[in-house]
């Protein structure tokens, strides 16, 4: 009996499949490159006209009406929007991260067994709620019923605070503000951070937790001294994902931040964020303004890129440090 090991039939599907998945993989680069090049290209005349640095730091934004790539008439200082993005995203992460840690820890370690699955499903469902719904709920219900009274209370209680000229809770209170947008953002990014942190905590080695419990550690001590340190890189990654979402979030911020072109140190003031400003203005924009909005888009993209790289560096560095200890 002779067994032949050469190919017995033609296989077309396999090479076709290989080509298809290769193309799909390559498309990632094509899309990324196409987007970066196209946006930067459109925005370039504005950066040339205004100067990149003064585009970032200027706080005057006056849209012009030129229809060509020259003869610009506007003034483009994007600082009020950059500031609004940074402040709202920071407020969001500062509120959301500790809460997410608590929720994740509760679900994993404290919740009764029959509650665990419903709770984690609900968290994941919340993470999938479209942001327009958060925005509407935030604007029509949360703002008048909860946020406005809360902001007024902040203003009347802490309005006097003055840190070297910075008055974080200075009035008047209009409702729509950096803080209102930041709080709604926090609620929005809470579920996504919680969902990831929960998974990170869930794969934390149980034997070390048990070792700590067996020495008489309380649940809080086990969380603080065993679970958190060894889950740190995952928690950083989760926060960066949340931060990225907060920085890029458009609709909900647009509805709650108040849409002004000025900026103010008080968290109770209205302002605008990069994404929200682009979304609000591009419909009626002149060709010149469109280019200016593209330029904001480039800056926004740079921000998200910096956050991503920062997260990777942080995770890499922590991994190296704790990896040394664990060898």
């Amino acid at each position: 009996m002779s067994a032949t090991l050469s190919r017995q039939r033609k296989r077309i599907a396999d090479p076709a499949f290989r080509w298809f998945v290769t193309l799909a993989g390559a498309s990632v680069f094509v899309i990324l490159a196409g987007m970066v090049i196209r946006t930067t290209n459109d925005a370039w005349p504005i950066f040339q006209y205004q100067g990149f640095f003064s585009f970032l730091t200027g706080d005057q934004w006056l849209a012009g009406s030129s229809r060509t790539d020259s003869d610009f008439t506007g003034t483009y200082g994007a600082w009020p929007f950059i500031y609004g993005t940074l402040v709202t995203a920071l407020i969001a992460i500062v509120i959301a991260l500790p809460l997410a840690l608590c929720v994740a820890f509760y679900i994993n370690q404290l919740a009764p067994k029959r509650l665990r699955n419903p709770l984690s499903y609900s968290v994941e469902m919340l993470a999938a709620v479209p942001s327009i719904i958060f925005g509407m709920w935030g604007f029509f219900w949360l703002l008048p019923n909860v946020l406005r009274p809360f902001l007024e209370w902040l203003e009347s209680t802490f309005g006097w605070i003055n840190l070297a000229g910075w008055k974080p809770f200075e009035g008047p209170v209009f409702g729509s503000s950096y803080l209102a947008a930041g709080i709604v953002l926090a609620i929005m990014i809470l579920p996504i951070i919680t969902a990831i942190v929960r998974e990170v905590i869930a794969v934390n080695p149980v034997d070390q937790q048990h070792a700590a419990y067996a020495l008489g550690a309380t649940r809080f001590e086990v969380m603080r001294k065993v679970v958190l340190p060894s889950s740190f890189s995952g928690i950083v990654a989760a926060s960066m994902l949340g931060l990225g979402r907060a920085v890029g979030e458009t609709v909900a911020v647009m509805m709650l931040i108040g849409s002004t072109k000025s900026w103010d140190g008080s968290l109770l003031s209205a302002g605008d964020s990069m994404a929200a400003h682009i979304a609000a203005r591009f419909g009626e924009a002149t060709p010149e303004t469109t280019k200016a909005l593209m330029a904001i888009g480039v800056v926004l993209f740079l921000f998200t890129m910096i956050i991503n790289i920062g997260a990777r560096l942080l995770v890499w560095r922590i991994g190296r440090v704790s990896g040394d200890a664990a060898v």
């Binding site: 080695p205 034997d207 070390q208 070792a211 065993v226 060894s230 704790s322 200890a325």
Partner: peptide, 9 residues
């Protein structure tokens, strides 16, 4: 415990 479980310290 069954498996030695020192902390990574």
């Amino acid at each position: 415990f069954q498996k030695p479980n020192p902390f990574p310290k």
